[in-house]
Every structure is written in structure tokens, then in C-alpha cells.
């Protein structure tokens, strides 16, 4: 069974990493850890793309007389920009975490929800 599907191993690695990231995002309450989870997920997608661009016997896509087979440069371009955009959006998410911490004094999802409920409740009783 493994012999038949050996060529799919790269996808499975990407999927396994993706699922670890996914689990961290949905099951963990800490906001910084959630962002780390999103990063894991993101890198898994990158690995998936890059592994699709690989050609057997190919070389890095830099033109040279002596090289005949190149790997596909297109996924590289897409992922190259995605990495930098990814870190910029990560920075934005971290800024939001810092801001949330300043308002609520915590970065745990559950505590934030409790505080919100409490605030709603207070408003209800006052009105």
C-alpha cells in the first residue's frame, strides 16, 4: 500500500502539518498560540505548493547553458510573495493581540468572553 502511494507522501506531510495548525487554531484559547497555529497552517500550504512545483531531475529555476530540466518557477513566485505578505498580516494580528491585551488585560479567549458577558449583563441591569 505504501509502495503504491509513495509519491503522495509530500501531500500527506503537508496535510498532517495543516491539521496540527488547524487544531491549534480551533482548540487552543491563547491568542498568541492561535497565531502560531495560523503560521503552521500557512507553512503547510507553502510546502504543498512548492512540492507540486518539483520536477524529477529538475534544478532550481535559474537559467544556465548546462541545465536542461528546471523545476516549475510559478509556485515559487506565488509562495515567495505569500511569505512576505504572511509576515505582514501576522504582524497585524499581533498588533490586534496587543490592543486586546490593553483593553481586556488578558489574551485568553475564554476570559475575554467572560468579560464581554459581564459587560453585557451590567448594561442590561443598568437600563
Amino acid at each position: 500500500m505504501f509502495e503504491i502511494h509513495a509519491g503522495l507522501f509530500n501531500y500527506w506531510v503537508a496535510i498532517a502539518l495543516m491539521m496540527v495548525g488547524f487544531y491549534i487554531v480551533i482548540a487552543q484559547g491563547n491568542l498568541v498560540k492561535k497565531i502560531v497555529g495560523i503560521n503552521i497552517f500557512q507553512v503547510a500550504v507553502f510546502v504543498f505548493y512548492i512540492s507540486m512545483g518539483k520536477v524529477d531531475g529538475g534544478s532550481a529555476p535559474i537559467l544556465d547553458e548546462s541545465i536542461k530540466v528546471y523545476s516549475n518557477p510559478l509556485p515559487h513566485v506565488l509562495i515567495l510573495t505569500a511569505i512576505v505578505v504572511g509576515v505582514a498580516t501576522t504582524a497585524l494580528a499581533l498588533a490586534l493581540v496587543v490592543r486586546i491585551n490593553r483593553s481586556y488585560g488578558t489574551i485568553e479567549e475564554r476570559e475575554i468572553i467572560t468579560i464581554n458577558h459581564k459587560a453585557d449583563h451590567d448594561e442590561d441591569t443598568r437600563s
Binding site: 532550481a60 535559474i62 515567495l80 510573495t81 511569505i83 512576505v84
Partner: peptide, 12 residues
Amino acid sequence: DFGPGGGFQAGV
């Protein structure tokens, strides 16, 4: 243009 590299990496 000639080797690996470019604007994104250089900026970082």
C-alpha cells in the same frame, strides 16, 4: 536577476 534574491528578501 542572476541568483536567488530580489526585493522581498533584500527588504527583509
